[in-house]
């Protein structure tokens, strides 16, 4: 009896926080859903009639939408490839005993502590600027035409900036995983005649599989919603060349003041994120159990 009573009491006790959290999630979701079915434009005040799926069809047939989907996926996949690949390389290097390890590790990890807007601005103005930037100066020294990164290759430049921010995260997680690798296993492989490459391929990489999965899952969640870096560098342009889904939703609701279409875009983004999540869990989630 006692356990039943305490169970009831426990449910009663956690009820406020559960209700609060549920309301926190359900109310905005419900409002977004509701707005997405209204004609709701701040430039045209008045009544907001119910228009069914009109907002969705506007959003989905918008030529910017397809570009945004492609850009979102390119951004996520590009950054994942660079950070996971680079992270593995850096983790292997940093796991070696060497002089000044502590300082080098802190230096490698520091980009992660810089705010996205700040790092994007630093990249934009100090590195990629075709007149004052460091890269332009370097090109000048070599007698080359300076390259205007954010105009000529906007998406690739943003992928570079975001990769620079997320590389430390991947490195950190993979480095801790590296350090849990049993040195006896490496020595056994050495005795078994495995070359350094084979040891990496057959021992280190499988050992890192789980950490790589974690990195991919966490980064995907954050990379789907990259926004600040685009806002402060290219504003989604030129044209829609660097507009991702998040930026498109922002543009609809806050640049064109169309709350209805913006909400519809938000719902589309939620669905897309879930599709990606299911896809990822299917593909690599099995690494997480056992």
């Amino acid at each position: 009896m006692a356990t039943q009573h305490s169970r009831a009491a426990a449910r009663f006790m956690i009820a406020p926080s559960v209700i609060l959290l549920l309301a926190w999630m359900v109310v905005p979701l419900a409002m977004t859903l509701w707005f997405s079915f209204l004609r709701y434009n701040l430039l045209m005040p008045g009544d907001n009639p119910f228009v069914g799926f009109d907002n969705y069809s506007y959003f989905l047939t918008d030529p910017a939408f397809q570009a945004a989907i492609v850009n979102t996926l390119l951004l996520v996949v590009g950054v994942l490839i660079i950070t996971v690949g680079g992270g593995i390389g850096l983790a292997v290097l940093l796991a070696q005993p060497m002089w000044g390890t502590g300082i080098i590790r802190i230096m490698v990890i520091s980009p992660f502590f810089i705010m996205p807007t700040v790092s994007a601005l630093v990249w934009k103005n100090m590195f990629m600027n075709p007149v004052n930037g460091l890269f332009a100066y370097g090109a000048d020294l070599l007698g080359l035409q300076p390259f205007d990164f954010l105009t000529q290759a906007p998406l690739a430049s943003i992928i570079g900036i975001v990769s620079w921010q997320w590389l430390p995260f991947a490195t950190l997680i993979l480095l801790t995983a590296m350090q849990s690798l049993d040195s006896d296993q490496m020595e056994a492989a050495e005795m078994d005649g495995a070359s350094a490459f084979s040891r990496f391929f057959y021992i280190t990489l499988p050992h890192l599989a789980r950490a790589i999965t974690v990195v991919i899952l966490i980064q995907t969640i954050f990379l789907l919603s990259i926004f600040a870096e685009i806002l402060v560098t290219t504003n989604g342009g030129p044209g829609v060349a660097s507009t991702n889904l998040t930026y498109l939703v922002y543009a609809e609701s806050l640049l064109r003041f169309d709350v209805g279409t913006g909400s519809a875009g938000g719902v589309v983004a939620i669905i897309l994120a879930n599709i990606v999540a299911i896809f990822l869990m299917r593909m690599i989630g099995k690494n997480l159990d056992a």
């Binding site: 049993d182 006896d184 296993q185 020595e187 056994a188 492989a189 050495e190 005795m191 078994d192 005649g193 495995a194 057959y202 021992i203 499988p206």
Partner: peptide, 15 residues
Amino acid sequence: AKRGLAMVFQSYALY
């Protein structure tokens, strides 16, 4: 690897 010896470790060191 070139010494032609095989070793069994305390922790087994299986993969």
